[in-house]
């Protein structure tokens, strides 16, 4: 204690203690590092991995095109799944029993059967329904075209993935909507907002904070589920394409590594996107202050905030003051 006093700078002495040592932690880390290093060294030498082939095929045009197709499948089917999922979730919470039941049956069917089976079904749709007819029932159709022409394997893959995913998204969204305090809906209702306005303006934005983490999971999961569309059969996505190449060149393992690298690359990008989305929807929650503008506003009146009681308020009749140019004393907060 005398040491710090002698310095004459700090009034409170810092605690000087021998830090708790974690010898096992360090030993374990070293052992682990050694094992990993051995594995990497071994993998680099092992001919089965055939690294030159990995390098050769990683940016092969067929592979990068297939990777792009995989990305397209993911994005398109996810967009449809989210829109449909939100709709289904709202339907499930609707007071209308007809709408509610429709959503329930949809979830029952699409969650209750494997996505692979559903994809095979979509692939067979051209066989089951050979043409798509529009017109009145039991009369000659006004418009008719063969299913195989109207719906390509690519479109069927998107439909198959999206309709299955929508069922899962619906449950995620429903959980999010239910997580919003019921007082929020009441306050909006009391202001005269319609049920739809209440949902869109008040409940859904707040539920996003709960929805985004599992939804991000679903996007990443979808990226990988696209490899199942070979069941349709649709063969131009990343996994099937690399398998097809491997079947000719016998480079099975290198092609798997190539595909994995591409999947990892996309997943990493998606994770970054998720991080920013989560930040965006954490607005106004708790002590986190992601909003730069709010930070600035806080700083400008930081002095007033140090006291517990606000400057305005009790005692004086603040209420009856006529609204004399309100902008005079408010920060310029136009967005």
């Amino acid at each position: 204690m005398t040491n710090t006093a002698a310095n004459g700078e700090k009034t409170e002495p810092g605690i000087k203690a021998i830090r708790l040592r974690h010898p096992w932690r360090n030993t374990f880390a070293v052992v682990l590092l050694l094992i990993v290093a051995l594995f990497i060294a071994d993998a680099a030498m092992r001919p089965a991995y055939d690294w030159p082939a990995v390098g050769k095929y990683l940016f092969d045009q067929r592979i990068s095109q297939a990777a792009f197709v995989t990305l397209q499948l993911t994005v398109y089917s996810m967009i449809i799944a989210i829109i449909l999922g939100v709709t289904l979730a709202i339907m499930r919470l609707s007071p209308n029993p007809v709408v509610n039941s429709i959503a329930w049956v949809y979830l029952w069917v699409f969650r209750g059967t494997p996505v692979y089976v559903q994809l095979v079904f979509w692939g067979l749709i051209g066989t089951i329904y050979q043409s798509i007819d529009m017109g009145l029932p039991f009369t000659e159709p006004l418009v008719s075209f063969p299913t195989r022409v109207a719906l390509s394997a690519f479109v069927l893959a998107i439909i198959g993935l999206a309709l299955n995913e929508a069922a899962y998204m619906a449950e995620i969204v429903r959980a999010g909507l239910l997580s919003v305090d019921s007082g929020q809906e009441e306050a909006a209702t009391a202001l005269g907002m319609s049920w739809f306005q209440t949902m869109v303006r008040v409940v859904v934005p707040q539920s996003m904070r709960v929805i985004i983490p599992p939804a991000g999971n679903e996007v990443i999961s979808m990226l990988k589920t696209t490899s199942l569309v070979t069941a349709i059969p649709f063969t131009l996505e990343l996994y099937t394409r690399s398998r097809d190449i491997a079947a000719v060149t016998f480079d099975t393992v290198p092609m798997l590594i190539v595909a994995s690298i591409w999947y990892l690359f996309f997943t990493s990008i998606l994770m970054v996107g998720q991080y920013f989305l989560e930040k965006r929807f954490a607005r106004g929650i708790g002590d986190r202050r992601p909003d730069k503008k709010a930070d600035d506003a806080t700083a400008s009146i930081a002095g007033a905030m140090t006291g517990v009681t606000p400057v305005v308020g009790s005692g004086q009749p603040t209420v009856v003051l006529p609204p004399t140019d309100p902008r005079a004393d408010s920060p310029k907060g136009d967005r």
Binding site: G284, G286, A294, I301, P310, T318, L321, S330
Partner: peptide
């Protein structure tokens, strides 16, 4: 809205999120 916030004595808190306001505010 700014006039109303001034009327309840909160003109300078217009751009605050509820989490950053006291219960009374």
């Amino acid at each position: 809205a700014r006039a109303l916030l001034a009327r309840v004595g909160l003109a300078d808190r217009a751009d605050y999120y509820p989490a950053h306001l006291s219960g009374g505010q």
